[in-house]
Nucleic acid binder design. Structure first.
Length: 572
RNA sequence: CGGGGUGUAGCUCAGCCUGGAAGAGCGCUGCGUUCGGGUCGCAGAGGCCACAGGUUCAAAUCCUGUCACCCCGACCA
């Protein structure tokens, strides 16, 4: 492929809006062009990478025994109402109306539609187990698209769904998907760690995310150096610092003028933050909830939501706080009525805490659960932090930032029951299928590949996803000897089944070398009068610093060998 | 939706405070030059200064509103 024909337009400087490395390189290398927030056009060069990623996914999914299907992106809204998720997805669901006023949604995911297809095709236990997948465009009206390709409003997802007769065989389907994912990420050159995760809006049981650890990530991951436990912060189990021991003392009202925050009150009264009781107000599915937690801890809203069995939890707005007569800055569960009081176990186990007096500028000392206040519900709803103890081995947990690349989880029978996916078992009894579901974000993977495979000069593609195997730079292409050598190089590469991008532009050598580094093909071949004098073409690998001059055929063979070795051993 | 920031040429940005003929570098087109790490010269094309309203003799510049985009939070692949 000649570079002139590929519409490769590199940028010397990245547009100001790009902050993430991957975003900057995507734009500078001319792989994508932004259209609107969360929407990108792919150029011929960028699309080749996307297709390579999809090829890897397809190969590994097929190898795992999954079957590729294709489902519409346009969904009748009734399907979403049937599952109950039309309301759950809220504004994230793009909605539209056809000419007959029938309502549709643009699919943000496909549990509903795959269930429809499954309900029409699965009849007997003899049809099971089966895993169906597709690589399809998803639409989500995200509140905040971000980071270039990290969070899009229209994106490509490989989504797979397994159907089993029971939980035991679901485990096998889940494990097969899990193994396929590990192969996919390894081949694509994205280092990932599997972490325990919350199953989120889709619901279900066991759930794991494949997370690419990077400072650019939007998720917080807790890792245990002792036993290898890894979990998303919203899911992570841990042991908070222990409470201070002591005998229950009589409650006492103290004047705390102008002291509102935990830090202020603790300092004023000469106690540690873990000797205080923090009050936080939420609305769970629009209903007010009073949350009590030890002062040194923060509320994990996902755990709170799960403890309440709520669909949605959001911080209470100031107006509602006032209307309910809650005293922000001096609130405690003492004497609170008319709303549930959810307490973290930390608040229940500690003794003699300092809490609000529910009147401005006053606090109470020596509050004790059971005596001074009573929780409606006690649960573990605190957010894990770096340094907290691992639940399994007691080691201090570490935190890292990460990007969720893929998610696998066990759905169970929820969708099967709502959407009518049943089979007849050996005894002729009608049973719901036990489902699992598995997703990978394709564009996000592209961004992660760049985050994980670049240097100061640009992208350094892993062989499997590189848009071309070799970048051929011609210097002095006007000279017949160079032009002839160029043809030899091209045919030698082609003879090995290698794809080459030939820089035939009429630019200076410096520009061509800079662009070759930026665009990042694994191998670079330079053809010039100088190289011909030395006996052939110069071969250099993007990740190496040495170069060698070889006859065209030998150079092509060396590229083929390097490629084969890299593919055999996994990407460098 | 809450908080912060930015909108001037394809890209990076000056100009705005203090109103008075729209600029630079890069990129693009043409000619020449150069030819192993973003050559050099000459000549060009390219802007409704985000949009709307207002103030003024006069608005990129001052005022009001709107929109878009980016960043931080709540959500997800």
């Amino acid at each position: 492929m000649r570079m002139r024909q590929l519409l490769v337009k590199t940028l010397r400087e990245a547009p100001a809006e790009a902050e993430l490395t991957s975003h900057r390189l995507l734009l500078r290398a001319g792989l994508v062009v932004p259209l609107a927030a969360g929407l990108y056009c792919f150029t011929p060069l960028g699309w080749r990478v996307v297709r390579n990623i999809e090829r890897i996914i397809r190969e590994e999914m097929n190898a795992s025994g999954a079957l590729e299907v294709h489902l519409p992106a346009l969904h009748p809204i009734e399907l979403w109402e049937q599952s109950g998720r039309a309301a759950l997805m809220g504004q994230t669901l793009f909605r539209l109306t056809d000419r007959k006023e029938r309502e549709f949604a643009l699919g943000p995911t496909h549990e509903e539609v795959i269930s429809y297809l499954a309900s029409r095709t699965i009849q007997s236990y003899r049809d099971l187990p089966v895993t169906l997948y597709q690589i399809q465009t998803k639409f989500r009206d995200e509140p905040r698209p971000r980071g270039g390709l990290i969070r899009l409003r229209e994106f490509t997802m490989k989504d797979a769904y397994s159907f089993d007769t029971g939980w035991d065989t679901l485990d096998a389907s889940y494990d097969a998907a899990f193994a396929a994912y590990q192969r996919i990420f390894r081949r694509a050159g994205v280092p990932v760690v599997p972490v325990a995760a919350d199953s989120g809006a889709i619901g279900g049981k066991d759930s794991q995310e494949f997370v690419f650890l990077t400072d650019a990530g939007e998720d917080t991951i807790l890792l245990c150096p002792g036993c290898g436990y890894a979990a998303n912060a919203e899911k992570a189990e841990f042991v908070p610092p222990p409470p201070l021991p002591g005998e229950q003392a009589p409650a006492e009202r103290v004047h705390t003028p102008g002291k509102r925050t935990i830090a202020e009150v603790a300092a004023f009264l000469g106690v540690e933050p873990r000797q205080t009781l923090k009050a936080v107000f939420y609305r769970a599915d629009s209903k007010p909830v009073f949350v009590a937690i030890r002062g040194d801890l923060e509320v994990n809203e996902v755990k709170l939501k799960n403890a309440l069995g709520a669909r949605e939890v959001e911080p209470m707005d100031d107006a509602t706080v006032r209307d309910l007569g809650l005293v922000a800055g001096s609130a405690s569960p003492v004497g609170i009525s008319g709303m549930p009081i959810v307490a973290d176990t930390s608040a229940v186990e500690a003794v003699n805490l300092v809490g609000g007096a529910n009147e401005p500028d006053y606090h109470l000392r020596n509050l004790n659960h059971g005596r001074d206040w009573q929780a409606t519900l006690v649960a573990e709803i605190a957010l894990a932090r770096a340094g907290d103890a691992c639940r399994t081995c007691g080691s201090p947990l570490e935190t890292r930032r990460g990007i969720e690349m893929g998610h696998v989880f066990k759905l169970g029978t929820l969708y099967a029951e709502k959407m009518g996916v049943y089979y007849l078992d050996e005894s002729g009894e009608r049973r719901p299928c036990v489902m699992g579901c598995y997703g990978i974000g394709v564009e996000r993977m592209l961004a992660a590949i760049i985050e994980a495979n670049h240097d100061a000069d640009g992208i350094a593609w892993p062989w499997e996803v590189a848009p071309f195997d070799a970048h051929v730079v011609a210097i002095g292409a006007g000279e017949p000897a160079v032009a002839e050598a160029l043809r030899q190089v091209e045919s030698a590469l082609a003879a090995h089944g290698l794809e080459a991008l030939v820089d035939d532009r009429d630019d200076s050598p410096g520009i061509k070398f800079k662009d070759a580094d930026l665009i990042g093909m694994p191998a670079r071949l330079t053809v010039s009068p100088r190289s011909l004098e030395r006996g052939g073409v110069e071969l250099r690998f993007r990740r190496g610093s040495e170069s060698a001059v070889l006859p065209a055929a030998d150079a092509a063979a060396a590229v083929a060998k390097a490629r084969a070795e890299a593919l055999g051993a996994g990407p460098a």
